[in-house]
Simulated assay, not measured.
Amino acid sequence: MPQATASDGTRIAYQVRGEGQPVVLLAGQSNNHTWWDPIRADFAATYRTITLDWRGTGDSGKPDEVYTTAGFADDVVAVLDDLGLDRAHIYGTSMGGRVAQWLAINHPERVGALILGCTSPGAAHGHERSQAIRRALADPAKTDRVLLELMYTPDWLARNPGPYHVLGDASMPAYAKGRHLVASNRHDAWDGLPGITAPTLVLHGGDDIFSPAANAQLLAERIPGARVEVIAGARHAYFHEFRSVASPAALAFLGAQDRA
């Protein structure tokens, strides 16, 4: 598996599938590239898809040091550099959407089109999940079930017994999970959002309470020219359960930018 070298020497594993214009797909907190496995083919049929294992996950290095969403964005740039790519479309979901914000803010020349999925500008200005959800997630005996119910509708879960790809990288060291949580919780891109110049689409599930759906309009109002599409009935993993709506919406947006 190819690996890029980050500015601090950490090795960042990445994966490439498909041909065409490059699209980087960024996973959620404490997850590796397999987050995208159920729907990656939707994009790889048209685009050269690039995923990576966040530091602390998968086959990437796992330094026990402070992680930040801006630092994760720098790791993505290291992957682009290793591939010899000056520019790529970026589609980030959940924490990956937070990282995508920093890519567009700090590295605007590297970002073509930007898609922000089920994400927020950060706790300081965004809409946060309830304390009841935080308490439920803090119980190790219930974490996976609570996460699944936040990700998917009951009907979908009843019809799809797994395996699931959004419950985190089971091989992560405990310290790395903690570092990811702190990085995501400390994210605050509010001041930089108005400076984003990339064409932007904001996607969100209308019934998402993990990253409340109100964040979608907040981001769209903060980023110049951004469009927002809220998928009715979808929860946090809208991109998977509602792929018949979400993937075409994302592909239509990317295609329009390629033709512009």
Rank of each mutant, 00 (worst) to 15 (best):
T51V: 04
L218V: 14
P38C: 06
G61H: 14
T143M: 12
A88L: 00
L85G: 05
D258A: 13
R55E: 00
M95A: 02
L219T: 08
G71N: 02
P154Q: 12
D64M: 05
W35E: 02
L219Q: 10
V146E: 02
G206H: 12
P194Q: 08
R222K: 13
A73V: 09
K142D: 00
A88M: 08
D74W: 03
W36A: 08
A232M: 05
S171N: 04
D53I: 14
V228F: 01
L25D: 02
A104V: 02
K62S: 06
G225L: 10
A27Y: 00
A27C: 12
G71H: 02
D37V: 10
A73Q: 05
R243C: 03
G28K: 11
G178R: 13
G233M: 14
G92Y: 05
M95Q: 13
I12Y: 04
T10H: 12
P154F: 07
S171L: 10
Y91E: 03
T57R: 12
G71A: 08
P224Y: 01
D155W: 04
A260S: 12
H187N: 14
R40S: 04
R134I: 15
A170M: 13
G233Q: 04
L103A: 07
S184R: 13
H240R: 08
L201S: 07
D86S: 07
I90S: 07
S7G: 11
G18S: 05
I133Q: 00
H33M: 06
G195E: 09
R235P: 01
C118D: 11
S130N: 10
A246G: 00
R134H: 09
A113S: 14
H240Q: 09
A213P: 00
R17G: 04
A6N: 05
G122P: 15
A136L: 14
A136P: 02
I115L: 11
K62P: 06
T68N: 00
V111P: 09
V245D: 13
H187Q: 07
H33L: 13
G92F: 07
M172R: 13
R55Q: 06
